[in-house]
Design a protein around this nucleic acid. Sequence first.
DNA 1: CTGAAAGCGCTTACAG
DNA 2: CTGAAAGCGCTTACAG
Lengths: 342, 342
Amino acid sequence: MTPPTPRKTRGTGRPTLEEVARRAGVSTITASRALRGLSSVGAEYVDRVQEAARELNYVANAAARALARAQSDTVAVLVPSLTNNVFTDVVEAIHTVLRPHGIEILIGNSHYLRDEEEALVRHYLASPPMGMIVTGFDRSEAARRLIDASGVPCVYMMELTRAENVYCVGFSQQDAGEAVARHLLARGCRRNAFIAAQLDPRMLQRGEGFRRALQRAGMHEPELEILTPAPSSIGLGCELFRQLLTRRPEVDGIFLGNDDLAQGALFEARRMNIRVPEDVAIVGFNDLAGSADCVPRLTTVRTPRAEMGRTAAELLLSIMRGEAVGAPMIDLGFELVVRESA
Amino acid sequence: MTPPTPRKTRGTGRPTLEEVARRAGVSTITASRALRGLSSVGAEYVDRVQEAARELNYVANAAARALARAQSDTVAVLVPSLTNNVFTDVVEAIHTVLRPHGIEILIGNSHYLRDEEEALVRHYLASPPMGMIVTGFDRSEAARRLIDASGVPCVYMMELTRAENVYCVGFSQQDAGEAVARHLLARGCRRNAFIAAQLDPRMLQRGEGFRRALQRAGMHEPELEILTPAPSSIGLGCELFRQLLTRRPEVDGIFLGNDDLAQGALFEARRMNIRVPEDVAIVGFNDLAGSADCVPRLTTVRTPRAEMGRTAAELLLSIMRGEAVGAPMIDLGFELVVRESA
DNA sequence: CTGAAAGCGCTTACAG
DNA sequence: CTGAAAGCGCTTACAG
């Protein structure tokens, strides 16, 4: 007649769906449906269940839900860097769109490394997110296959492609590079240099466009390009600018593939007593923090980072809902912002 | 005699522990233990199970594991901003330490808002992470209680406290503020101003220390403080510097509570033809990107961001493992970096 | 050291 | 519109 020894408690100790259902006087299943807002539940029930949930301070167990549905309320976002503010802006915008939908975002930073990105893809796909937003198209063959085979809806951002069934939102990096060249040419610069770091695909594409426009004008000088895989930074911009102007003092126009490099160039020009834009015109890229305020104010290309993040997130939302979406490729364009440095 | 209709498949379609076990010829339980490296499994079994797992390309289902253990392989990190590079540095370091342990980090950005932080805490605690790393001590009472009651190990960073049973790693913001004041005083500045934005607790603490040191020297002038809750930025630094110098041209020393503000001040000084440090000495805070390269190079306080992230992560790891840890408070100090601007 | 049973807390698929 | 049953894929607790 002794009562059974109480089992050691497992679980989280939090209220469960069953307790909510009991309190509301319905089955668990009905409670589940009511809470999820499925229309097939009587209105009276919905109220009772919601009230019970509130009273109990019920929060659905995310793991249980994910297990039962074989899917989580999560979107993985893969970026190559968080140090480069370009990506914090994008991630911020994605977050802003997804959060209200109860979607948690997992930020994966690949540090511009293919191997790390592949590992991240593997890891995230282990508990498949409901969607992914990834940067560009340059990745390992394995990572590519994993994504394709996973069946997880994916939106690509920062670059554009016309490939079938690939959702992408971005702008043409090449065209942006061309626009810079044309601007420099138009303001009379004859010896135009290109300084690039990191050498990720997008940086290279900008260089490609820049080069093409110069060639078309018959003014391309290959020796006026400085390319280094070192991470882009203000300090590196100083260094490369000095190096270039020391060896090639005749240069009168420079396109630096990211604003941090350009800001560094501005500092170094001052230290070298080189006047900008009188002696040399300087154009950056991305319109990062500080570019509007430095001396002289930096001429640069404003990239639609917030819009890309927002649009990518909204597109993904539509795809995940199974809604019909328009064109799979969304070109958000860019804007040359002419200030004082060129 | 018709075979039973095959059930519609649910699940993820990925290989399960059971399949691994079957292939290795052991029970699921043994497979589970072998894979987790529990020492209570015979070596022969371990090999067989691991091989089977490899052949099947087995990846444990994270949701199932989380449900069974009522815990996930996740650490939540709460920061007030990602735009401020201070926190990307910290997060990066945390990531570097935790990732090799198979721990995924969830980055929560509260945007310096108490309500948002509370919502994040609630959300994360819904599927309790194995640990948390949070910024500072200023939060809503509810958030505080939720964290305490959750039983989730938590490490506080960026600030220090001597409170019992609170693990924290950081440095004394007050002392850092004092150090700046002493430096300015030592180089002969008599009219020292303080410019601060955002006004988060740490910014205020730095101001507190700065003020105290000035008062002690009998040189504190309350009207020389400009405090605004607007987000810190280079542009804001320009604006506030101009405002201050216009109204108070006698100022000969300024402490700006974050390097972006200070960099802005440097730009604006140049535009106003005010010489730094001859006319006015300028000191920033944090030693952010660009501060070592601008003109003049910025004197600032280098804060141990990577070390804080690393140390906080390692401390959390120890706590989660139930290891004995030393002092609950780890002071990492700071360093005044004297360059050209002061 | 190994295993059969039960359970974690939800949701799917099937009936009614 | 509502519900009883089964299942998602692991791990805990108990035995041996």
